[in-house]
Design a protein around this nucleic acid. Sequence first.
DNA 1: GCCGTACTACGATGCCTATCGTAGTAGTCG
DNA 2: CGACTACTACGATAGGCATCGTAGTACGGC
Lengths: 124, 124
Amino acid sequence: MTTAAPAPAPSSRDLPHPVRGEIRLEAVLHALSDPMRLQVVRELAAVSDELSCSHFDLPVTKSTTTHHFRVLRESGVIRQVYRGTAKMNGLRRDDLDGLFPGLLDSVLAAAAAQAVRLGSVAVR
Amino acid sequence: MTTAAPAPAPSSRDLPHPVRGEIRLEAVLHALSDPMRLQVVRELAAVSDELSCSHFDLPVTKSTTTHHFRVLRESGVIRQVYRGTAKMNGLRRDDLDGLFPGLLDSVLAAAAAQAVRLGSVAVR
DNA sequence: GCCGTACTACGATGCCTATCGTAGTAGTCG
DNA sequence: CGACTACTACGATAGGCATCGTAGTACGGC
């Protein structure tokens, strides 16, 4: 075993992500069709950086939050990594733009337009 | 009474559609997140004309087909009208483009790109 | 070493939905 | 009128999913 890959301790903390080629349009659309998940994606796109799960103050329990983040991750919309005790979430903009050019931007623009239209203009 | 609207016989054949302002992004994304419905929308966009329900040869029963067309209609993606015995379906491109500029086109492009990517290039 | 924080996993529940089959209604054509 | 076509409505079923609560695991600080 020359390579002697030290197997960086599976640690049971590695999260399964679809590789770019495995991302399916239907799954992405489904992930974005939930208001709570769409809101999360909008926030992530706004900061264009990673955010911890606890940063989001969603009106549901932690368990449900975990579930929504998992749907987003497994559909390929976000990437999740552990950083110490925190789990950071980042938008997979490169992969999404590569596979579906313009899709994410038009969805984000549509969400923003609708937020204005529905009078949610004042932040929340 | 001048108008004297003769009430063109409700006939129980008028189909409820959301007006433009009632169309919700989440509902549209959800409607498009089903493979069968996405396929229908792609065909409608390809012909840019009305198509009867029976034109589509979906691998499900008539009942299920009716259900899918209703989801598309109630979400505001398509418009349905009766023409004789046939029920014609047309994409509401104007309304969708007006509310969510570029969204429909990028979804259609993404669907086409994915179809190619998955090797479904040879028809079925 | 112990505790608090952050997040997960598991089990349960209720709703939504995709699917079917059967029966029924509207329109057209003979 | 009568048969045929096109589509709907209704009822049933099974699976998915958003939600919760509780219990558990990993990390970092004291």
